[in-house]
Structures are given as C-alpha cells and as structure tokens.
C-alpha cells in the first residue's frame, strides 16, 4: 500500500516535471506533421506521363516519360526568423512522377507554430555525396531507390531527370526521338566539377502554415516542367536533346531552380 502510494506519488511528480519542463520551453512544446506534396504541372496543366503533348517556349512539342528529382535539406521558417531544420538523416527524398506516393513527403515532429517559408535543396549536397556508401540508405541507395540517379564518386548523384520525346529531337541510335536532361554535379570529389546544387526558398506569403498539435498541415508545392525549359534561359530540344554533364547543365539547373511555387496550404 505504502509502495503503491509512493509509486503514484513518484508518477505524479514525474508527470508534473515533464509538464513544467514543457511549459518552460514555449518554443518546442508540442509537435505536428507537415505533409509536402510535390505536384508536377506543365504550365496550367497537370503533368501526365507519355500520353500528353505539351509545347515549350521554343515552340517545340514534347511528351514527358520521366520526371524525377531529389528534394533534400528541408527547413521551415517562422516569421520571427526561427527555423525548424529537418534532421539530416531523414531529409533526403526522391520524388518521381511515376510514383505518386514518392511525391508526398511527410515531416513528422515539427514544432507547432506558424511557418511562413520553406527551404529545400534540389539534389544531394556535397557532404552526403562524398559520404561513405554505408550512409547512403533509403532514397540515397544507388543500388536501390536511387538506382539510375547516380554517376560516380566524382560526379555524384543525379539531382533531376527529365526525359521524353519530341518530334524536334534528332533520331538517336535506336531510332527514337528522345530528349534527356540528367542534371547533377555537386562540385567534385577528386576533381573539381561544376556545382549545380540549387536551394529553393518559397514564401508561404499570406497563408502561413499552421502546424498544430497532432495535426497534419498540408503544403502543396507545384513544379512546372515548362520552367525547366524556359525558367531563365530558354532551351531548345532541337539544339541540345541531351544534356548531362556538359556545361549546358548549369542552364537547366538555373531554369529548374525557378520551377517551384506554393499551391495550397491547409490544416487537417
């Protein structure tokens, strides 16, 4: 009896300690979930693989057969400038148009509050690119989820792939009119390369994301394929149907750095 009384007294004490500790730290009292949904579009249209023909700024018709990119190093910022940085080990996501589930990124344990902007990188940062292979798990496993999204130690991960067909592309060796943009290069491991890493900052503007206790806040991020062609410097499929590690890659990267925008924000 006495023991039970003691135990419940201890529990009460512990409970109060936790409670007080929580109240003493108003910045990180409780947590919610943020769901980032990457919706790929082509101008005003939803992106549909293979079946739909679109037209880029150079007037070239094209279809898209693959649109895949890495999103990493995500940060959420509040109006007062404080930020929540998603822990490094769980901040790499490979989104793919062909896999709808991959386009929804769940960020758990986000401190409650009103967030006014979001930051992320398109690609895989240089540190992770040079990390030992054992640290390249999940979305970063070149033999698994990241198959096809990696070149080698010096060139690193491919940050973004846009592939498709265009009647303006020349015929390749297999008789197809393909265009292929594979963009990567983080600066180089042994030999210096270009650095095509892009950090994106998107303001949520008039509609801050309210993260509430145990709630899920959905943020829709739109990515416009047309911007990959025309964001800053217009690219022509006819002139360069294949862009991978050549100097033109930086033009594609500068272009796609402008493709993201915030769609809707909602709390469930």
């Amino acid at each position: 009896m006495k023991n039970a009384f003691f135990a419940s007294g201890m529990s009460l004490f512990l409970f109060l300690t936790v409670l007080v500790a929580c109240h003493n730290d108003p910045l990180e009292p409780e947590y919610g979930t943020v769901q980032l949904r990457f919706d790929n579009v082509v101008g005003a249209q939803e992106l549909k693989l293979d079946s739909t023909t679109y037209t880029n700024g150079s007037g070239e018709p094209f279809t898209v057969s693959r649109f895949t990119y890495f999103v990493s190093n995500i940060k959420l910022k509040k109006a007062d400038g404080s930020e929540y940085v998603v822990p490094q080990d769980s901040s790499y996501f490979l989104t793919s148009q062909s896999n709808p589930a991959s386009r929804t990124v769940l960020l758990r344990n986000v401190p409650v509050g009103d967030y006014t902007s979001i930051n992320f990188m398109v690609g895989v940062d240089s540190l992770r690119n040079t990390m030992e292979i054992g640290k390249r798990t999940g979305a970063l496993d070149p033999g698994g989820a990241a198959a096809g999204m990696y070149w080698d130690w010096n060139s690193g991960y491919i940050f973004l792939k846009l592939e498709g067909t265009s009647t303006k592309a020349p015929v390749d060796a297999t008789g197809k009119r393909n265009f292929v943009y594979h963009i990567g290069l983080f600066g180089g491991y042994q030999t210096k390369t270009a650095n095509n890493l892009k950090t994106i900052q998107l303001a949520l503007g008039t509609q801050p994301a309210h993260v509430i206790v145990n709630g899920t806040t959905g943020i829709q991020v739109k990515a416009d394929v047309l911007k990959v062609f025309d964001g800053v410097k217009p690219l022509s499929i006819a002139a360069a149907p294949t862009i991978m590690v050549s100097d033109s890659a930086k033009n594609v990267a500068n272009n796609y750095a402008t493709m993201f925008s915030i769609g809707t924000v909602q709390v469930d």
Binding site: G188, Y189, N195, K198, Q201
Partner: peptide, 25 residues
C-alpha cells in the same frame, strides 16, 4: 532579391564545403 541572395550565400557555403573536401582529399 531575397531568394537570390539566399541562393548566393547557399552557393558560397557549398563551395566552401566542397573546397574543404577537396583540400582534405
């Protein structure tokens, strides 16, 4: 403008990291 300066700072940071990697290589 804010976006751009952020990008530039980000790039400098990354260049720094890359150069650090390279010198330690």
């Amino acid at each position: 403008m804010e976006n751009r300066s952020f990008g530039i700072i980000g790039s400098i940071l990354f260049l720094g990291i890359v150069m650090a990697c390279q010198s330690g290589k």
